[in-house]
C-alpha cells in the first residue's frame, strides 16, 4: 500500500504554498493515500487549512510548544515517531525542507531523493543535477521508505475544496535542547512572494547600487510582480539574501520573468528555466541570458526600465 506522509511548511499562522505543491507531486504517485503532518505549537487552524487541499486524505496535527519555530533537530525525531507505516515521506525543497528532510532520512537509515521534478512511478523519479544541466532518473530501493524533497517550481498548487479528516497525534519523541531558535530577521514586503509570484522582475550587478535597485522595485510594482536578484547583486549588498534566484538561491517558475542587468551565469539560469516567458534587458548583446530569453532587448537599462515602467503603467491604465 502506498501511503505518503507530507510534512507541511508553515510560519505558525499560515501554511506555506510549498505544501500545496507537494500535495500535487504526491498525488502523481499511483494509488497513494496522502497524509499531511502539521507540526506546530498550536496547529488547529493550520491543520484546517491543509485539510481543505484536494487529494489530502488525512491531516495529522502534532502540537508541541517546542514546535513554535521549525528547528530540524527538534522536528525530525517527531516525524520519525509517526513515520511508521508510510512508504513515502516528502517535504518541500525549500530551506525548511532541505534542512529537515535529510535529518529524517538519516534517522530512518535511508538516502534521500532531493528535488523531485517528475514522478515516473512509486519508486522512480527525475531530478536535476549539475545546476540543472543534467536530469537524472533515480530509482529508490523497494521495501524501504522513500524520503524526498519536492522541487516546488515543477508543480502547480493543489486546489482547495477538499475535506480531509484531522487527527491529533501525541508523539513520544526525545526532543533535544541543543539547538535553540533565537530570531528571524525578515525584510517585510507587500510585494508578491518571490517563490509563488506569477510575475518576477530581477536585477543584477549592472544596477550598480542599492539606490538604483529602486528602478526594479518600481517596475515590479507597476507589473504587480515579485522582486528577485542575481547572486552578484546580493553579494554586492544591493538587496538581501532572500531575493537570490539560482542554483543555490530560489528556483522559481513564474509566468513572466524579466531579468534586468543580469548576464546569466548558469547558476542563475538554473533558477529560472521553468519560467513561462523570460525577458532579458542587458547592454551586452552577447550576454548568456539572451540564449534562453524569449524576448531580448539590448540597451541601457537606466533608459529602458523607466520607459518600460511608464509603458506598463499606460498599458494597464487602458484596460
Amino acid at each position: 500500500m502506498t501511503r505518503i506522509l507530507l510534512i507541511a511548511e508553515h510560519d505558525g499562522t499560515s501554511v506555506n504554498p510549498s505544501t500545496a505543491k507537494c500535495v500535487t507531486c504526491a498525488s502523481e504517485i499511483p494509488d497513494a493515500e496522502i497524509h499531511v503532518a502539521v507540526l506546530a505549537k498550536d496547529g488547529a487552524s493550520l491543520a484546517g487549512e491543509v485539510a481543505g487541499l484536494t487529494s489530502v486524505d488525512k491531516v495529522i496535527q502534532v502540537d508541541n510548544p517546542a514546535n513554535s519555530y521549525p528547528v530540524a533537530a527538534i522536528l525530525a525525531p517527531q516525524i520519525v515517531a509517526i513515520a511508521d507505516g508510510y512508504s513515502h515521506i516528502f517535504g518541500p525543497s525549500t530551506t525548511f525542507g532541505k534542512d529537515l528532510m535529510p535529518r529524517v532520512a538519516a534517522l530512518l537509515g535511508v538516502n534521500q531523493i532531493s528535488d523531485i521534478m517528475s514522478v515516473l512511478g512509486s519508486h522512480s523519479f527525475r531530478r536535476p543535477i549539475y545546476a540543472g544541466n543534467a536530469i537524472v532518473t533515480v530509482e529508490a530501493p523497494a521495501g524501504l521508505p522513500v524520503v524526498a524533497t519536492v522541487r516546488i517550481a515543477s508543480y502547480a498548487s493543489a486546489a482547495g475544496g477538499g475535506s480531509a479528516s484531522i487527527e491529533a497525534a501525541s508523539v513520544d519523541a526525545d526532543i533535544p535542547g541543543h539547538t535553540r531558535f533565537i530570531e528571524l530577521r525578515s525584510g517585510k514586503s507587500d510585494r508578491p512572494d518571490l517563490q509563488t509570484a506569477a510575475k518576477v522582475v530581477s536585477g543584477g550587478r549592472a544596477l550598480g547600487s542599492a539606490e538604483n535597485f529602486d528602478l526594479i522595485y518600481k517596475l515590479a510594482d507597476a507589473l504587480g510582480a515579485g522582486v528577485g536578484a542575481s547572486r552578484a547583486a546580493v553579494d554586492a549588498g544591493y538587496v538581501p539574501n532572500e531575493m537570490q534566484v539560482g542554483q543555490t538561491g530560489k528556483i522559481i517558475a513564474p509566468e513572466l520573468y524579466i531579468a534586468i542587468g543580469i548576464s546569466g551565469a548558469i547558476q542563475h539560469l538554473t533558477g529560472i528555466k521553468d519560467a513561462g516567458t523570460i525577458v532579458a534587458i542587458n547592454k551586452d548583446g552577447e550576454a548568456p541570458i539572451f540564449e534562453i530569453a524569449d524576448i531580448g532587448l539590448v540597451g541601457d537599462l537606466f533608459k529602458i526600465v523607466p520607459e518600460l515602467e511608464a509603458a506598463v503603467g499606460a498599458a494597464s491604465g487602458r484596460e
Binding site: 530551506t95 539547538t179 531558535f181 528571524l184 539574501n241 530560489k250
Partner: peptide, 14 residues
C-alpha cells in the same frame, strides 16, 4: 546566522 527563504535566521547551538 542562517540564510533561509524568508530572511536571516539566528540559532544558538551547543
Amino acid at each position: 546566522t542562517r540564510e533561509v527563504d524568508i530572511g536571516l535566521e539566528s540559532i544558538e547551538i551547543d
